[in-house]
Write a protein that binds this DNA or RNA. Structure first.
Lengths: 102, 102
DNA sequence: CCTTAGGTTCGACTTGCATCGTACCTCTTG
DNA sequence: CAAGAGGTACGATGCAAGTCGAACCTAAGG
């Protein structure tokens, strides 16, 4: 089962849920943004400056987190998100490459 | 531009549109159904016996057709759908493998 | 201790999408 | 020509999802 922050294990990740998460333009842009950075790059939600309110931004990150795309890391002061590259490549080989190619 | 039946060329296919088409359970099931058959298999919309009305079935096939997943072939009496395997593999390598692996 | 920065949660609103029934189209077959 | 099979188009409806503002939480730093 997902942990207290809603992160599913790779085996629990559902392809349709992931596809739905990626189908939204803003969320797709966030994942594409991570793929343009070095693997393991951590970023705050705010750093993406999405053209929506803070609460909507939080909602989108929750969808990605619960789909298994992102992991939230607590740093005391600010929380950061990191793309679960390794786990996604193992569970859905080729998926991130498709996003990267776009 | 898409032809008169709404089939996009591979270059016109949009990944997000394809992901959205695949995110629906019924549509995902149809594509998965095609992948269980021999490549090039043609099937009528009705042959899937989706648990929805005829008009809803037609709607779902339209979404898949306009995303580029399916091509409709006119046979005079009945129209059949066929998965655009080659074009999809070329445009989005690995995508169909993900669906197949599910 | 108060302020600020970064996120979350909640309730409300609004848009989008799946769904349906009805009507219509085309081709085949009796 | 009428009837039936397979699909499409359209308008209406209901639910899911995106959006927002306001209130709240935690940690850092003056």
């Amino acid at each position: 089962m997902p942990d207290e922050e809603g992160h599913p294990l790779p085996a629990e990740m559902d392809l349709r849920t992931v596809l739905h998460a990626l189908a939204d333009p803003l969320r797709f842009g966030v994942i594409a943004g991570f793929l343009r950075e070095a693997d393991g790059t951590e970023r705050t939600c705010a750093s993406f400056q999405l053209p929506v309110s803070k609460s909507t931004t939080s909602h989108h990150f929750k969808v990605m987190r619960e789909a298994g795309l992102l992991r939230m890391v607590d740093h005391g002061n600010s929380r950061t998100a990191v793309l679960r590259t390794k786990e996604l490549d193992a569970r859905f080989p080729g998926l991130l490459d498709l996003v990267r190619a776009e």
